[in-house]
Design a protein around this nucleic acid. Structure first.
Lengths: 225, 225
DNA sequence: TAATCGTTGTTAACGCGTTGTTAAAATCGG
DNA sequence: CCGATTTTAACAACGCGTTAACAACGATTA
């Protein structure tokens, strides 16, 4: 159960979020201004931060800077007004993991949080980087796909996509989940990118006919062995 | 379309709310005092309650207590005066889902209602995904219907319909409910689509004669095993 | 009983959105 | 600047879901 630091000055929005996140299995602490939030961060160990950008006292970006001085790797999600430009957010070179514009869909926020946690878990826990795909072996940490003597070094994204498919071997992996986890956004163009990568992976995997990547229309893909 | 029980003694506020909620696709019944509201609750099936705390006859908290005796899970939102302390509301250990202070922003109320409804849907959907249908097994998360060695990957809508039938196995599932849940609206053409999908499912399920999808004319379908 | 009407069963054809695939353009990294 | 990688574009192919068409059935009349 991940511990989340939430800094949000609007009371009703704050409660709404706390409630929602708690029912989804997170341990949430809410602070209404940046000073207190930052203080809390220093005194407790959180796994995750969700910061409103517009705050009295100290804005979200400043909090993030301070948090980053303490912990360089903790995931941070910003809540921003829709009017705020992407550039401005990305411009803050703080290793921001994601941001969500208000008013936002709670499920979308949850999806993003889970995607980030998954990503981190992968980095931390996944010693299991070796997958067997029919007669192939795939070493995701080396991005290496091997069939007999033939080895092919995959690119980063090729490897990321294949790894997601491998982790749910013979099960549907949702387009949406792949896009959010790897690209961070689920829109038309990234969707087309995914299709391109699926085509590449199919080409790499074509030498074992017992292996195939199946499309489930409008839902996602299955790596069948 | 969720059915909402609204108990509010102030006439103008009441009409305002009814109007607003109805234009947002809810089916709202308004009662001006707690006794009638409670009575209505017992006689009808509501999905949601919005209760004013200050009421003549029986206050909102008392109604909530009584409602909880009938239905332990139904979402309740309180309308409270701003002056009322948080503690007092949360103190009522009634499983109150949310509260809104008057005067309130209608959009905020809508947001809260939707959030709660979403949450409920999530909780419901996250339930079991594996069903046994006679000799078949149906894995709704993988959209896979299996009989012995034979597996058939269903399309999304096929899977959605079958899942609804499975969740009420041997019970009537109303046409209207399926149409609203899966197609979003209940009109002639979507109704015919549903019939087409029922025909497809019957074909998929024909190899176990103990399984059948029964039509209940003008009402819906039953998946019998 | 026969005729009519509304509902459902079933199959098939069509349109259109999604996906497959390749190639060009853009971006990234050194 | 170059090569590698990713994104975007373009077009082909496919298949899902809708719609149509007709058959079957039960209920309701006369």
């Amino acid at each position: 159960m991940a511990r989340i630091l939430l800094v949000e000055d609007d009371t009703s929005m704050g409660f709404l979020l706390v409630d929602f996140l708690e029912t989804n299995g997170f341990d949430v602490k809410l602070y209404k201004d940046g000073i207190k939030g930052l203080e809390a961060f220093k005194n407790h160990s959180f796994d995750f931060c969700i910061l409103d950008v517009m705050l009295p006292g100290m804005d979200g970006f400043s909090i993030a800077e301070n948090i980053r001085q303490v912990d360089k790797r903790i995931p941070i999600i910003f809540l921003t007004a829709r009017s705020m430009k992407e550039d401005k957010i990305k411009g803050f070179n703080l290793g921001v993991d994601d941001y969500v514009t208000k008013p936002f869909d709670e499920d979308e926020l949850l999806l993003r949080i889970k995607a980030i946690l998954n990503r981190l878990q992968l980095q931390e826990e996944d010693q299991e980087t070796e997958f067997t795909i029919g007669q192939y072996t795939f070493d995701s940490s080396n991005q290496m796909l091997t069939l007999g003597d033939d080895s092919k070094r995959l690119t980063q994204k090729e490897s990321d996509v294949l790894k997601m498919l491998c982790k749910s071997m013979n099960n549907i992996v949702r387009r949406e989940d792949i896009l959010v986890a790897i690209w961070g956004e689920n829109d038309y163009f990234h969707g087309r990118s995914l299709d391109v990568f699926i085509a590449k992976l199919r080409k790499y995997l074509k030498d074992d006919t017992s292996v195939n990547i199946e499309n489930v229309p409008k839902v996602g893909f299955v790596l069948n062995t």
